[in-house]
C-alpha cells in the first residue's frame, strides 16, 4: 500500500502530472475575482475566505476525473480489482496520494493568496486550517464521482457536476468556521468540528462507495 502511495505521488509529480496545474488553476481563479468585483480592499478582505474556499474547491475537482481513468486505460485497474487487498483500502490510499499531490499544495498556497485578498493574519490562519481539514473530504467525495464516471469517455465534466452538490456542506462549514474565527461573538470550534466530522465521514463512505462503483464498472 505504501508502494501504491508513492507510485501515485511520483506519477503526479512527473511530466504531465496534475500536481502543479491544480495550484496554478487555484491562483488563476482567485486572481480573476478582483477583476470582477473591483479592487476594493475592504470588500476583498470580507469575501476573501469565501473566494479562497471556492477556488480551492474548483481546483481540487480539476484532476479528480483522472483518479481511476488513467488506471483503467492502461489496465492497471483490472489488476487492482483482482488483488485480495480490500479494494476499499486501495481506493483510500489512492485518494490519500491524490490529496497529498493536489490538495496539500493548495493549502500551502492559500496564505499567499490570502495576502492578495488583504486578509488579516487570523483569517489567513483560519482559512489554511479549514482548508487542511476540509479538502480531503472533497477528494473522498470526488473519488465516488470518479469511480462512477470511470467508464465514460467524457467523464471529466460529469465528475464535477456529480461532485459539486455533494461538496456543498464542506464549503458551508469551511467558510462559516473561518468567519466564526474572525468575527468575535460566534465560536470557531462548532463549525470546525462539524467540518472535521464531514471529512471523517466521507473518508469512510467515499472509498466504500467508490470501490462498489468500480466493481460494477468492470466489463
Amino acid at each position: 500500500m505504501i508502494a501504491l502511495f508513492f507510485r501515485d505521488l511520483k506519477l503526479s509529480v512527473r511530466a504531465g502530472g496534475g500536481a502543479m496545474i491544480g495550484v496554478l488553476f487555484f491562483m488563476t481563479v482567485v486572481s480573476v475575482i478582483p477583476f470582477g468585483v473591483g479592487p476594493d480592499l475592504n470588500l476583498l478582505a470580507r469575501i476573501g475566505a469565501a473566494i479562497l474556499w471556492i477556488g480551492a474547491l474548483l481546483a481540487s475537482l480539476l484532476g479528480l476525473d483522472r483518479l481511476f481513468q488513467g488506471e483503467r486505460e492502461d489496465g492497471s485497474l483490472d489488476l487492482m480489482l483482482m488483488h485480495e487487498t480490500p479494494l476499499v483500502l486501495t481506493v483510500f490510499v489512492k485518494c490519500a496520494a491524490h490529496w497529498a499531490a493536489t490538495g496539500l499544495p493548495l493549502v500551502v498556497a492559500s496564505p499567499f493568496l490570502g495576502l492578495f485578498m488583504n486578509m488579516d493574519e487570523l483569517a489567513i490562519g483560519a482559512t489554511m486550517l479549514t482548508l487542511l481539514a476540509g479538502t480531503p473530504a472533497i477528494t473522498f467525495i470526488g473519488a465516488v464521482g470518479a469511480a462512477v464516471a470511470v467508464a465514460l469517455p467524457r467523464g471529466g465534466l460529469l465528475v464535477s457536476i456529480l461532485v459539486l452538490p455533494l461538496a456543498i456542506p464542506v464549503l458551508i462549514f469551511g467558510v462559516s468556521a473561518v468567519y466564526a474565527a474572525i468575527e468575535d461573538p460566534a465560536p470557531f470550534l462548532p463549525p470546525f468540528m462539524i467540518l472535521m466530522a464531514i471529512t471523517l465521514f466521507f473518508a469512510v463512505i467515499g472509498p466504500v462507495a467508490a470501490a462498489a462503483a468500480l466493481r460494477h464498472s468492470a466489463d
Partner: peptide
C-alpha cells in the same frame, strides 16, 4: 498593505501566472 490590485502590480502578477503556465505547458 501587502498587496493592492493596482494596474502595475496586477499586470506583473499576470505575467507571473503566464510564466508558470508556460512552464506547465513545457512540462
Amino acid at each position: 498593505t501587502w498587496w493592492v490590485w493596482d494596474a502595475r502590480l496586477t499586470s506583473v502578477f499576470v505575467l507571473f501566472l503566464m510564466y508558470l503556465g508556460l512552464m506547465a505547458l513545457n512540462r
